[in-house]
Amino acid sequence: MDKKTIEKIMHLARIELTDDEKQEIPSQMEKIINYIDNLNTLDTSGVLKGEAVFLKEMMLQPDRVETFPDIGLLTENAPSFSEGFFKVKKVL
């Protein structure tokens, strides 16, 4: 895992890392990825594609509107919210 990849992940996750941390992270991430690679050694030939870990089927909810009473809670933590809109730096 190279420095560029780490920086990209940092950007996507919106986190800052010190130079020391940037040194440490690649080996840690590789350990995680290698651990997940263990899963590939399992024989899954008898498992249906898309089969989930749940043995239950999905519960469905009725088609009745329930409005959320406190929309302010959803907007007050947004980095920028005004004129009724969430705002981000321009993307186009």
Partner: peptide, 12 residues
Amino acid sequence: LVHRKSETLIDY
């Protein structure tokens, strides 16, 4: 999304 000159507005 509503694209403005300096920012993008979002309606969910």
